[in-house]
């Protein structure tokens, strides 16, 4: 039939797939042996990983450097709170509502932000997020500017919580942490799987072309606007889901925390940059480093932030491709390869 075929996988990626399956299996059963604080730490790592993967898709692959992803975390979180408090929806279901709310919001914001390019786009997204924060602060039903908590009845009667508390023989508060942990694990794994799948589709290939040279991409028939729009919508939806989940676990919300540029964008950018922008592996490495730094240094207050800043600058200067980039340059290893390699069976011409 054909004269050649495409190969994407490599030896290291097949190895990585085995390791990943093993890891997921262990992670699923971890609550049976692990204590509550470890699960909370892992929840933090997984949910940050979701946020960083989406930001990385947006900025690292799509070239859309957004400083306003907190808009989608915040709107997702508030959509979750709103649907629980006002609509009596189960919190687990309301996480989905959070994703859809963020997606719906991303349509008009795309209309505004896509008129801007480069640095102007970044500032524009930030401004949009600030406007959202100020707007939500006016919403009295969910606590206005001071915020509110999830009603006890809602968190106690949440789906699965009863079952988990019986199964593990723990209090409902601990059962809620286990549920949140499982949800974050599920969301993290699906996020990486969906992004990896997307990068290997035809649209993903177009995204690489637009990233490398948008003028040339247009001249081979790629609609660069559509490519970027798809990525923007996907990232909004995923970030909204994460926002809903994070605030389900926190069970307390305020506009300043839900729309925090530091927590949901600055840290996210830091993680992606030190890990390696434009790779799926980078955010994974980055989030682990970030977690380590945070647990070692967060007691030192402003020294902690200054250390993060210094590390960020050092990595940008000496390893602009991040820690993973440094590693992959030395070893040539890729855990999530996207390169379409041409294999011509007979003898090469």
């Amino acid at each position: 039939m054909g004269v050649g075929h495409i190969k994407v996988g490599t030896a290291s990626s097949r190895f990585a797939a085995w390791i990943a399956s093993g890891f997921i299996l262990v992670a699923i059963f971890l609550p049976f042996v692990a204590g509550r604080s470890l699960l909370q730490d892992l929840f933090f790592i997984f949910s940050m990983l979701v946020l960083t993967q989406w930001w990385n898709l947006l900025a690292g692959y799509g070239g859309l450097v957004s400083v306003g992803q907190q808009a989608f975390v915040g709107i997702g979180a508030y959509a979750m709170f709103g649907s629980v408090i006002l609509g009596n929806v189960d919190p687990v279901v309301s996480i989905l509502i959070a994703g859809f709310a963020a997606f719906v919001l991303s349509v008009p914001t795309a209309f505004l932000a896509f008129r801007l390019h480069g640095a102007y786009f970044a500032i524009g997204t930030w401004v949009i997020a600030e406007v959202m924060r100020l707007g939500v602060a006016q919403w009295k039903a969910v606590g206005g500017g001071t915020g509110t908590s999830l009603p006890r009845s809602a968190t106690r009667d949440m789906w699965f919580v009863d079952g988990i508390s019986v199964l593990f023989d723990v209090k409902t508060s601990a059962a809620r942490d286990i549920l949140a942990y499982w949800l974050s694990l599920f969301l993290m794994v699906t996020t990486i799987a969906v992004i990896y799948w997307f990068l290997r589709t035809r649209r993903g290939l177009a995204l690489f072309a637009v990233r490398d040279n948008s003028q040339a991409a247009q001249s081979v028939g790629i609609n660069d606007f559509i490519s970027k729009l798809i990525v923007y919508f996907m990232a909004a939806f995923g970030t909204g889901l994460a926002g809903g989940l994070i605030y389900l676990q926190k069970a307390r919300i305020s506009p300043d925390s839900a729309f925090s540029v530091l927590d949901w964008t600055a840290y996210v950018i830091f993680i992606v940059v030190i890990g390696g922008i434009g790779t799926l592996e980078g955010p994974i490495v980055g989030v682990l480093v970030f977690f380590l730094l945070q647990s070692l240094l967060s007691d030192f207050g402003s020294w902690y932030l200054m250390t993060l800043g210094v590390i960020g600058i050092a990595v940008m200067l000496f390893a602009p491709k991040g820690l993973w980039g440094l590693f992959t340059e030395r070893t040539g290893m890729e855990l999530f390869p996207t390169r379409r390699q041409l294999v011509i069976p007979e003898k090469e011409t």
Binding site: G2, A209, D212, N213, R339
Partner: peptide, 29 residues
């Protein structure tokens, strides 16, 4: 103006797939 972080083959494949509205598999040959 090549797509410099893509391979030569990927450069052609993306052009063929989008310039002609076909799937990746259809344009390999």
């Amino acid at each position: 103006q090549p797509f410099h972080r893509m391979t030569v083959f990927e450069n052609l494949m993306v052009a063929a797939a989008f310039g002609r509205g076909l799937s990746e598999a259809e344009v390999i040959d």
